[in-house]
């Protein structure tokens, strides 16, 4: 657990810079996927809900440093969305394709909805966000999480190889 937390800071810093400097210029279907969010979500599914929440906190804070939104608002929305979606979907299926896809879609909807609510609470005017972004982002994240989940699965296997009884 400790190694994974130390890993979160440099990895999320790299992803936040990539998100802001590179991905923002290469939108997919007019949407920019939130890479740090998907990585934190995958890690939470693979390891433990707590670790996913810690990664979401680190990633969200770093992303907020490049944003005009108040620091802490993005990690707050990410943490709540990741925790709720994993808690709801995990008991329903254990499939390595269906589980991340459903969790990503639900977490994205929760994160965007909560994010917008929080932005409004902090005095930001966000009007057409729900209708314009929610569904395409949920679909995009549900598709993109599969390769990310697979990569994180390989990373997880390297960090903590499974014990096999012979």
């Amino acid at each position: 657990m400790r190694v994974s937390v130390y890993l979160a800071v440099p990895l999320m810093l790299l992803l936040a810079v990539l998100e802001t400097a590179v991905l923002s210029r290469l939108p997919l279907f007019n949407q920019t996927p939130q890479l740090p969010f998907l990585v934190a979500l995958s890690w939470g599914l693979l390891r433990d809900l707590k670790e996913g929440v810690i990664w979401a906190f680190v990633g969200g804070i770093l992303l907020d440093l490049f944003s005009v939104t108040p620091l802490g608002l993005t990690p707050l929305a990410w943490m709540v969305a990741i925790a709720i979606s994993i808690l709801i979907i995990r008991p329903l299926t254990s499939s390595r394709v269906i589980l991340p896809t459903l969790v990503a879609a639900l977490a994205t909807i929760l994160y965007l909805g909560l994010g917008m609510l929080l932005l409004r609470l902090f005095g930001y005017q966000v009007t057409s966000l729900v209708t314009a972004v929610l569904l395409p982002m949920a679909v995009l994240h549900a598709l993109l999480i599969l390769p990310i989940y697979w990569l994180m699965y390989l990373a997880d296997r390297r960090l903590s190889p499974r014990r096999v009884q012979v």
């Binding site: 707590k50 804070i61 802490g72 990690p75 707050l76 929080l118 902090f122």
Partner: peptide, 19 residues
Amino acid sequence: RWGIVAFLIGLAILLSILD
């Protein structure tokens, strides 16, 4: 585990207000 999750959520709220 839930203590850490609650602490991080509280910290995020605090940071948002302070910022």
